[in-house]
Nucleic acid binder design. Structure first.
Length: 289
DNA sequence: CTCAGTGTTCAGTG
DNA sequence: TCACTGAACACTGA
């Protein structure tokens, strides 16, 4: 499920269901991996009878602001999802998920019953997600180590360009680095590089100012667009690389150009050499689009 | 049976 | 310190 837009969707879902309400019942799975240095039982007691004041997000991390500390923090890992049932359905722009699931769903790690009768379930299939307790999540690890959230505080063009020019790693690896931009994952990084027409193997400090600014604009627009449709993939613009990148299939094309696959920063990178060409010299008219 | 995968961290190396 | 690689984590689905 989760890169920034999917986590933002989860945040809105939880907020719509629980903000301003009291948690009446909590069930936690027995799981010593997802519950990170805290027992499921302790999480249960910390949440029970608390009022949810707000739901926050930074990058791919989520946390609940309660009327009493500590607060629970969530990272969905690669396969985490949040489901809701009952109560007043939150206003999401996308079509609501089909309600054919068992309840609570398979792989549920935390199940909450709210005083309105609504319920929330957080699942984690592959157990790479984490649930933690913190007194002040934004100021403590691991959230305190995150870089800027592109939706909440994207740096100015000037500061963004400076940040890129201070790093010698490849631009793909830098985009994936959560201490640089929090919330960017593998498909967003590839989408941004494709739309900005930049070779993923280029060094960050070797990008021209025009390229760096283009990258920032695309990063902003891709994330805003995905968030606007509540991360509903079927509503992503048709011309996004997103729709064609999966499966690592040879022979896939986009607008007639072949998609190639590489491993960079340990991750599969989908890119279109004919578009993201590595140009030795940058010709004059570099315009944004 | 094998392998890739929307994520992160850590050990080892240069 | 920086940066890269590979492995580990754990499990599903193609």
């Amino acid at each position: 499920m989760p890169e920034l837009p999917e986590v933002e969707r989860a945040r809105r879902l939880i907020e719509g269901v629980a903000a301003g309400h009291r948690i009446k019942r909590v069930t936690c799975a027995r799981d010593t991996i997802v519950f990170d240095r805290v027992s499921p039982n302790r999480v249960r007691h910390v949440l029970a009878e608390r009022t949810v004041v707000a739901v926050h997000r930074h990058g791919k991390h989520l946390w609940l602001e309660l009327d009493q500390r500590p607060w629970p923090c969530f990272h969905l890992g690669m396969t985490g999802e949040v489901f809701a049932r009952g109560g007043t359905p939150p206003q999401l722009n996308s079509t609501p998920p089909v309600q054919t699931k068992a309840w609570p769903p398979r792989f549920t790690k935390i199940h909450l019953v709210i005083d309105t009768g609504a319920e929330l379930a957080m699942t984690n299939k592959r157990r790479l997600g984490r649930i933690r307790l913190r007194d002040d999540p934004a100021r403590e690890l691991p959230i305190s180590r995150l870089g800027f959230d592109p939706l909440l505080d994207l740096p100015s063009p000037q500061r963004f360009v400076d940040a890129l020019h201070s790093r010698s790693t490849t631009i793909k690896a830098l985009l994936l680095d959560q201490t640089f931009a929090a919330g960017v994952g593998n498909w967003i990084a590839d989408e941004v590089l494709y739309q900005a027409r930049i070779d993923p193997r280029r060094r960050a400090n070797a990008l021209s100012v025009a390229e760096a600014k283009r990258l920032r604009t695309k990063l902003k627009r891709i994330i805003e667009t995905a968030v606007l449709v509540d991360a509903d993939k079927s509503l992503f613009p048709r011309d996004w690389l997103f729709h064609r990148r999966w499966g690592r299939k040879r022979g896939t094309t986009i607008r007639g150009k072949p998609i190639e696959f590489l491993t960079i920063g340990g991750r599969t990178t989908a890119w279109v050499p004919a578009v993201q060409r590595q140009r030795a010299s940058v010709t004059s008219a570099e315009t944004d689009s």
